[in-house]
Simulated assay, not measured.
Amino acid sequence: MSGHGSVAVIMEPVTEPRPRRRMSGSERREQLIRISRTLFAEKGFDGTSIEEIAATAQVSKPVVYEHFGGKEGVYAVVVDREMQKLLTMITEALAASHSLIKVERAALALLQYIEESSEGFRILVRDSHAASGTGTFASLISEIASQVEDVLADEFAARGYDPKSAPMYAQMLVGMVALTGQWWLEVRKPGREEVAAHLVNLAWNGLRGLNPQPAISAVTRARDTAPPKPRPSSEKELRELEKARERELKEAEKVRQRELKEAEKARVRELKERERLLKEAEKAREREDKIRQREAKLAERAARLEQVDQSE
């Protein structure tokens, strides 16, 4: 070591940035589907490009082509998933034992899907692009209507109506609910349950028998907020489930009878109000007739007085 002062240089170890974990093929596929779903919902099929999907995922275009073959492929997967999700929710809702409960739960299921999967519903109603390979939104509505058709056919037969009309009524009912859902997608007011109550009010009671203050039945409300129950695995559980269904049916019938009574009371009030207005109108006409008669008498008297004056 020399006599001159020396400075010891301490070399710190150089730490290289850790390489980003490479996604597996299935993870990359799910990422691309997620990103594409958001872009399709925001910009539509025609407004979204492969370049944009790849750039958002930070991959090259060939990666997207490798997984889906192109924009049409990823769009078809996105649409198919949304349709299956919505159909599953509607199918589960239609498993109830009473027709009124089925209609309530189906309406709530659609609104729940819109609330929880707004992007998916926006894709279904916005584009309905033929590239989806699974059909348009109209075909989805028809598929749901075919399930509702069975419900209506049973209800029609029980009430003495022609079951052959069920397909037509099913299209009307599902179309009404779907269009209301498109409107509610944007406004989100009133709340989901209130919208469903008014939908069922119109569908179940008709314009003539509308309930002035509709509400979802307690049976449906309890199911909508309760966690899903496991499937029965024994005869005892099956018997208990059947008893629960019977109680549900009785409760639904009570609700229906109560709603019918309320609707009847509303009709009676309306009739009384009409009678009152008719009576008031009749009294007003009688008063006008008396006034006209009095005026006619006064005019006649004035005319006689004038003749007397002229003769004098």
Rank of each mutant, 00 (worst) to 15 (best):
L179A: 04
D162F: 15
G191L: 01
L179P: 03
L179K: 08
A166I: 14
Y169I: 07
F156M: 06
D154Q: 14
D154N: 09
V195R: 13
D150W: 01
K189Y: 06
P190T: 12
R159Q: 07
V174P: 06
P167Y: 02
Q182A: 07
E193T: 10
M168A: 03
K189H: 00
K164V: 15
M172E: 15
V151Q: 05
V174Y: 09
W183Q: 04
T180K: 10
Q182G: 04
E149C: 09
W183H: 04
V195Q: 04
E194N: 15
V177F: 06
Q171Y: 00
A166S: 01
L179T: 10
V177N: 12
A157G: 12
F156S: 07
M172N: 15
A178F: 05
M172G: 15
L173S: 06
E149R: 14
G160Q: 09
W184H: 02
V195W: 04
M176H: 11
L152Q: 06
D162L: 12
Q171R: 12
W183Y: 10
D154L: 14
Q182M: 02
R188E: 00
E193N: 15
M168W: 05
A158H: 01
Y161R: 06
G181Y: 02
G160D: 11
F156A: 07
V174D: 06
V174L: 00
R159P: 10
E155Y: 08
R192C: 05
A153T: 12
M176L: 12
A157R: 07
A170S: 06
G160I: 08
R188G: 02
A166P: 10
T180Q: 12
E155A: 07
Q182K: 04
G175P: 08
K164F: 11
P190Y: 11
E155M: 05
R188A: 00
D154C: 11
P167S: 09
P167T: 11
V195T: 05
Q182F: 00
P163C: 09
D162E: 08
Q182Y: 00
T180I: 10
G160K: 14
V177Y: 02
G175Y: 08
R159D: 10
R188T: 15
V151C: 10
P167H: 08
W183D: 05
P163H: 03
Q171K: 04
Y161A: 14
A158P: 15
Q171S: 07
A170M: 11
A158D: 06
A158Y: 03
G175L: 10
Q182P: 01
A153V: 05
G175D: 05
V195E: 00
M172R: 14
L185F: 03
L152T: 12
W183T: 01
R192E: 13
Y161M: 09
E149I: 09
E155S: 03
A157Y: 07
S165E: 15
G175A: 00
K164D: 12
P167D: 11
T180L: 00
E193I: 10
L173R: 08
M172S: 14
P163Q: 03
W183S: 03
L173E: 04
K164S: 15
Y161K: 03
G175N: 02
A153F: 11
L179M: 11
E186T: 00
S165R: 12
K189A: 08
P163M: 08
E155N: 01
M168C: 06
R159G: 14
